[in-house]
Design a protein around this nucleic acid. Sequence first.
DNA 1: GGCGCTCGTGTGTTGAACGC
DNA 2: GCGTTCAACACACGAGCGCC
Length: 411
Amino acid sequence: MNSNDVIASVFKKISVFKNIETLYPEYIPENLPRREIQLRQLAEIFKPMMLSPGSVFIRAMIVGGVGVGKTATAKVFGREIRKFASEKGFDLRYVHINCHRDRTLYEVVSEIIRQIGAPIPIRGLSPREMMLALLNYVEKHDIYLLVALDEFDYFISTEGNDAVYFLIRVYDEYSDTKKRINYIFISRNISSLSMLDPTTESYILRHMVKLDPYTSDELFDILSYRRDLAFYEGTVDDELLKFIADSKGVDKGGEGNARSALETLLLAGQAADHEGVQKVTIEHVRKALGVVHSEVIRISDDINFLQLHELLLLKAIIRSLKKKKTVFVKIGEVEDEYNYICQLFGIKPRRHTQVYEYVNTLKHMGIIEAKVSGKGFRGRTTLISITVPLNELEMKVDEVINAKKELVDAS
DNA sequence: GGCGCTCGTGTGTTGAACGC
DNA sequence: GCGTTCAACACACGAGCGCC
C-alpha cells in the first residue's frame, strides 16, 4: 500500500462521529444544560442595562473551578444578550478577552479595539489615551459593550490594583456620559482579589455568580446533549455516559469537571474509530479514562497560550526531570537543556534573565512548581518540579510547539 | 523624518547562600 | 574569608507603530 492509499483509507473509514468538533473544548454549544440558573442570574444582574441602556455601569464576576463552564456561560450569555439587544434596537457588542494572552492594560484595551474593529491607533498611545479614544468611538457610533475578562487573576497579578481600579471606575470622571462599557470578570477563585484594595474588591464582588463543580447527574445531562451533537445515533449507549459521569461527578468523588468528561467521551470515540468498529464500548471508555488526567487537561488548556520559548523551556524542564529521575531539577540544568533544545530546533535561545522570567510565568500559571533552594545546595538556586505525568504532558507540549513553529516558519 | 509610546529582551550590578 | 552560583533588580536598547 503506498502513502496515498494509507491516507485515503483513513479518510474513507466509517466513523462513529458525525460532528467531532462539538466535543472540542473551544466549541460553544447552542444550549448549556445545567447552567440555566447561572444564566438567569446574569440576566437579572444585567437587566437594568438592557431596560435602560447607558443609565448604569454594571460589573459582574463569574467564579468557578476548572471545567465548570465559566467561559461557555459567559459566551452563551454574551451571544444571547446581543440578540436581545438587537431585537430592542440597540447595538450591543460582546467582547471576550483571555487575560492569559492579554494580561496588561495596554493589551486588554487594544484587544477590545481590535475586536470591535474601531479605527483607533494601538501604537503611539498610552492605554489610558486608547481607552479615552474608545469611549469617544462608542459614544459617537452609539455602541454598547459587554467586555468579559477571562482568567482575570492574571490581569490582577500583572497590572495590580491601579489598572483594575482604572477599568472599574472609568466612568467616575465622566458621570454625565452614557455608561457604554460593562464588564464580566471571570476567575477560578476570589482569593486573587485580595491583592486589590478593599474598595476595588467590593466593587467587583457586588454581583457574583458562582459555578459549582458538576454532580454526576449534571454531567450525564451534559454528556447526553453533546453525544447527540457529536455521534451518530446508536453508537454511544446511555450506560457509557453514566459510567463517565459517575467517575467524574463531584458527588461520586470526582472533580466535577465537564471538560475532562467530554475529553473522555472524545477519546473513547476515537478509540472506537481506530479499531474500525461502529459502536463505542465500555472498554473504549475505560481506556480513555486511563489516558485523561484532569491536571493534564487543565495544563494543556493553559499551554495553548504560551509563547514558543516558554514551551521550549517547559519541554526542557520535562526532559531534565525525566533524565535526572528526581522530584526537582535546578534551574541551571533546565537552562542547559533549554539551550540544547533550541539548538536542535535551530532557534536562538533567550538569555538567563528571560529564562528566569519564563520560569516565574510557568510557576504563576500553576504548570510547574518552583521553590528557592535552602540548605544543602551550593549558592541559591530555583528548584523546579512538575506533578502531572511527564510523558503525557510532553506529548501535549510537542503538539503545541509544532503548531507554533509552523506559524513562525510560515511568517 | 523626528518624536513618543509600549513591549520584549539583554546586560550589569548587588547581595544571599553555600562550599571549600 | 574567598570563590561560586544564582536571584533580584535597574537600566538600556531596539523594534514596531502612529502622530505631527
